[in-house]
């Protein structure tokens, strides 16, 4: 299982909101595939699948906020 992590986005940015998940639960993804989009108050950042597999869980839903370093979901 591989965690999908909200990466460091810049100094002073501690949180971001998940604007959308591009992949659905159970959907197969490949490494580097755009999997979700995080937005700060000023910009959006596309997060890619860190591993190949199926999207096993979504821990931060669309519209919810996550902290930098938080597990947004998992790939199994």
């Amino acid at each position: 299982m591989t965690n999908i992590i909200l990466p460091e986005l810049g100094e002073g940015i501690t949180k971001a909101t998940i604007a959308c998940w591009h992949a659905k639960l159970g959907e197969s993804v490949v490494v580097g595939q755009e999997i979700c989009e995080a937005v700060t108050d000023k910009a959006s950042f596309v997060i890619e699948a860190p591993a190949a597999g199926k999207l096993g869980s979504i821990l931060v839903d669309e519209g919810q906020e996550g902290s930098v370093g938080a597990v947004l979901g998992t790939i199994e």
Binding site: L9, G10, E11, G12, I13, T40, K42, A43, F45
Partner: peptide, 8 residues
């Protein structure tokens, strides 16, 4: 610098 805040 890989920093979204600085870029903005």
């Amino acid at each position: 610098g890989k920093d979204l805040k600085v870029y903005m």
